[in-house]
């Protein structure tokens, strides 16, 4: 039996809203340590990796007697989650050999309990080995700032060149109609932690990425005040949104190489 009770349905709603447009069907792999999900977009250029730990406070209850895989159409799951109030407690439940996934939404005052079952899918998405990497550069910045940069620069071109150096990080775009550049300096004297821009630099990195994918990743902005960008020359960039009391949602994007 698998049963996971999340304190806030809004967290699960935000996660699925972040994923459903770029990743259609995905497997939730559930074990005693928690829930993970890994999937690639249809063009195999982007990959997402979700990790929700069972020992974090975000789960009021968590039980997983045997490892199970829940193959879900994320669009359908998004529709079901729209039936939950943001403050509802959501419980996911499935049997050990599941062919349905049950959602239970408890309103705060427990006057309304809703129950939905969805049919599970057989999704043969083989998991990719994501190597642990010591990144040349890790940028921590406000998530809304990153969303705005991607949105603004995508008006002028389809690739952004991210240039990490010791003073900070630059984002540049050059298209037919024009070009744009945004230079972020490391912040030194801001009071609020979540407004800081920090750059941990081991090596300078200059790499280009498709803006349409980065803009799609920023749908996860509501999950966290900050976002972490990890870069190494000629490897995929990692865009990580920490999920308080749960874990994180990571997006990997393969670089574009200039011929």
């Amino acid at each position: 039996m698998f049963e996971a009770k999340m304190l806030q349905s809004s967290v699960l709603k935000k996660i699925i809203e972040s994923l459903k447009d770029l990743f259609a069907d995905a497997n939730f792999d559930c074990s005693s340590s928690g829930i993970t999900l890994q999937d690639m977009d249809s063009s195999h250029v982007a990959l997402c990796y979700l990790k929700l730990r069972s020992d974090e406070e975000g789960f009021e209850d968590y039980r997983c007697d045997r490892n199970i895989t829940l193959g879900v159409n994320l669009g359908l799951m998004s529709k079901i989650l729209k039936c939950a109030g943001n403050d509802d407690v959501v419980t996911l439940r499935a049997e050990d050999e599941p062919n349905i996934l049950t959602f239970i939404f408890d309103s705060k005052n427990s006057e309304r309990v809703s129950k939905y079952d969805i049919k599970l899918m057989e999704i043969d998405s083989e998991l990719l080995g994501i190597p642990d990497t010591d990144y040349s550069c890790v940028v921590k910045m406000p998530s809304h700032e990153f969303q705005r940069i991607c949105s603004n620069l995508s008006q002028l071109g389809d690739s952004v060149t991210i240039d990490c150096h010791k003073e900070g990080v630059d984002f540049k775009v050059a298209g037919e109609q024009g070009s744009g550049a945004i230079k972020l300096k490391q912040t030194t004297s801001v009071d609020k932690e979540e407004d800081q821009v920090t750059v941990q630099l081991n090596e300078p990195v200059t790499q280009s990425f498709a803006l349409k994918f980065l803009c799609a990743f920023t749908k996860a902005t509501s999950l966290s005040d900050t976002v972490n960008l990890s870069l190494t020359q000629d490897t995929p960039v990692v865009v990580e949104y920490p999920i308080a009391q749960h874990g994180y949602l990571r997006f990997y994007l393969a670089p574009k190489i200039e011929e």
Partner: peptide, 14 residues
């Protein structure tokens, strides 16, 4: 011109 690489180029199927 720039060429978009794919994830499989970097992360192998185990």
């Amino acid at each position: 011109i720039s060429d978009q690489l794919q994830m499989l180029f970097f992360f192998l199927r185990p």
